[in-house]
Design a binder for these strands. Structure first.
Lengths: 325, 325
DNA sequence: TAGAATATGTCAACCGGTTGACATATTCTA
DNA sequence: TAGAATATGTCAACCGGTTGACATATTCTA
């Protein structure tokens, strides 16, 4: 049977009010009484019931994170840092994999709302803007700009510019930009925009290709890339919107006997840990995943505590040159 | 201000008892009343307060998962499936990254206990056995055998046998087994055992190398492997205890101009998604990550519902031959 | 028509902790 | 010594939902 605050009070010879005062560092408490209470709690292996505390204080200290899939390397790293920084600030993380399915996204937000989470970090973006209005919760989004909601993004335009210019500077004549679906109005779509703008302004031939919305696995990436390379064998420069897509492009290039970087140069986006593990090591645009995570928790925490926050949070990217260019 | 059950009852013209009956499908409720209540809940955008329900029902429907780090590809995949299967059964996942730190592991279990989780899936194993006894919670462990606690593992001995025999059958004369720390008494250590047994019984020269306990990143793997290859340049067969370590071995081999599989053959363990993305594609021992996850949730669910469960759950492995052997 | 079945209401205790308002006791300070 | 400061207790309402026990009303069935 679970030990309650009442048991602690009884054994410590004080009232539940006193125990609560000790726990919440509220009011006057002598060191003698405080130590006695802590000692009894330890003896009884007492753990305050966070559910009861949440109900009473109307604060759960739980943050929900909704991501497309935690098995994707970018999001697994993001989840790792989010949890670490959240924990430092006394929050717990509830993990939700939406697989970019609007229905699941909606379900998860409802679930999180019912669980009285203190806030939501939204890194999955298929829900309609209007559906955010019903939430009445602190929210931080990644890569999506919604009126009144603070968002975090890396400088996508700059990143894509760096990548596209590098490919051109290194002599590429036919560029390809490979990404996930552009049908969501995400800030990451600026990568596509920059790619096109720069290719056009520098008079370089280019093509773009997108996956379907909920594509995160290797077979589908491979298929798309293989077809692209078959249809456009003169592609000699690839900019991919993620390192994972880039890794697939490396793979297909190898299979088609395109030497990297001699015959084809490849640039990714993210700089996930895996990118330096590839052979050849991937040149990529680095998103500061850890900083983004830390900032997300900071922004959310501020909102939870009714502090003002910056709405627009664009973090700098960096070009990380390795062996694919 | 949050809508409560009371508001719903008032607007629907029934009592809170009736609304509760509708919500919990308890007692007699006419279809007319049921529909009316649901309609009002929708109009008011009412979401039952799961915190209050958890306190009342003494069931949170939350499962804690403690893993070394979700950014490791094996654990990110595991976390993905755990969350998916848990959600199907009405559970929510609280994510905890322990980084194989005993102190953090202890903290997380305490935190989860305070949050009244219905159970814990433990895939991080530095806590003393005695510390599990205080938990009084349904638990499932991965890869660790603790008296009275159901565990899940793949057939480590079989997997390592398949790998070691394959290397020898393919002509390797000097084998190396590279793994994480063996100082924890984990079932995965049977891989080491099998490796040594088979090498010895088949009279093949071998060596083993281990990382420190909390090593999960590439630089440290690389350093260890590079030193190993430098000190033992005749190694021509590598069995790694994870695909991630194997990927590093591939990398270092390339750097040292060891051709794969001609000069050196490499086998991993896990068959994470990344393994087929490597160049050359990795031969590995497949752990059925999805099945293990599904089973873990099943075992935990049964315990939560006071049903008997199997303690020993060893899942079969498979040899997946690709290009590194 | 009597009794059973269906349907909803009344009532209040319960889950485990929090907290405001005030009372009481003791110690400290000017 | 009076008043302030420190320290703990008393009391009960509160958080939002659940539920048992019973009452009351209506409808159905033999």
């Amino acid at each position: 049977m679970a030990i309650t605050l009442k048991d602690v009070a009884k054994k410590a010879g004080v009232t539940v009010t006193t125990v609560s005062r000790v726990l919440n560092n509220r009011g006057y408490i002598s060191d003698k009484t405080r130590n006695k209470v802590y000692q009894v709690m330890e003896e009884l292996n007492y753990q305050p019931n966070e559910i009861a505390r949440s109900l009473s204080k109307k604060k759960s200290n739980i943050i929900g994170i909704i991501i497309p899939t935690v098995s994707h390397p970018f999001f697994s790293e993001l989840a790792f840092y989010l949890e670490a920084y959240a924990y430092q600030k006394g929050y717990k993380i509830m993990l939700c994999n939406s697989q970019h399915d609007p229905k699941k996204e909606k379900e998860y937000t409802e679930m999180l709302r019912g669980n009285q989470v203190d806030g939501i970090i939204m890194a999955s973006h298929t829900m309609e803007v209007s559906e955010y209005e019903n939430l009445d919760l602190p929210i931080v989004t990644f890569d999506r700009q919604i009126e009144g909601i603070p968002y975090i993004s890396s400088d996508n335009y700059k990143g894509a510019s760096l990548a596209t210019n590098l490919l051109i500077d290194k002599g590429c004549k036919k560029l390809a930009y490979i990404s996930g679906s552009l049908s969501l109005n995400l800030l990451a779509n600026k990568r596509n925009e920059a790619f096109i703008n720069i290719a056009q302004s520098r008079n370089v031939d280019y093509i773009t290709a997108q996956t379907d919305m909920n594509v995160f696995n290797t077979q589908q990436y491979e298929g798309l890339i293989r077809n692209l390379f078959k249809d456009h064998p003169d592609i000699d420069g690839v900019f991919a919107s993620s390192d994972l897509i880039a890794a697939n492009a490396i793979k297909v290039s190898e299979q088609l006997n395109k030497r990297i970087p001699k015959d084809i140069k490849i640039i990714g986006y993210d700089d996930i840990q895996m990118s330096s593990l590839l052979i050849p090591e991937l040149t990529t645009i680095r998103q500061p995943i850890e900083e983004m995570s830390s900032l997300a928790i900071e922004l959310l925490n501020k909102q939870i505590n009714d502090n003002d926050v910056e709405i627009d949070n664009i973090l700098p990217v960096a070009l990380i040159e390795r062996q694919t260019t």
